[in-house]
Write a protein that binds this DNA or RNA. Structure first.
Length: 120
DNA sequence: CCTTTGACCAACA
DNA sequence: TTGTTGGCCAAAG
């Protein structure tokens, strides 16, 4: 699997984050078939490799913390976008328990099969 | 070719 | 419960 494909996978999974939910770098990496490659997800976003469509604001770290002022065009942009989606942000952090995307095994398998079928 | 860097993470003290 | 540590791995230098 080429890395270009990994970015494609991230785009596909990112588009399926349920409304009003957030995901983590690690979860995206896992759903994209590379559980130990969460740093690469951060790299892709940092370098703007995911395009304008990608809901980067819905990606937080494993403890629910937002990505940092430097990561978005405006320092407070990520928080504003999350709040606009009805997601509570307190102390620069969201509750993963309440707003995390708790995907099922079936969902994970659907992605796996889709990627297989697409050959990416 | 190395070596360093990073929008990460789980385990540990 | 907070800070640290070692592992991770592709891209950049």
């Amino acid at each position: 699997m080429k890395n270009i494909d990994f970015y494609q996978r991230i785009a596909i999974v990112g588009a399926k984050i349920p409304p009003g939910k957030v995901t983590t770098y690690g979860q995206l990496a896992l759903l994209c078939g590379q559980p130990n490659n969460s740093r690469q997800v951060g790299y892709a976003l940092n370098r703007g490799k995911m395009g304008r469509e990608f809901p980067a604001y819905k990606v937080v770290n494993g403890r629910g913390y937002l990505s940092g002022a430097a990561s978005f065009a405006a320092p407070d942009l990520q928080r504003e976008l999350l709040v606009a989606d009805g997601i509570e942000v307190k102390d620069n952090k969201v509750s993963l328990k309440r707003y995390g995307w708790h995907h099922t095994l079936e969902e994970a398998e659907r992605f796996y099969n889709l990627f297989l079928q697409m050959g990416i």
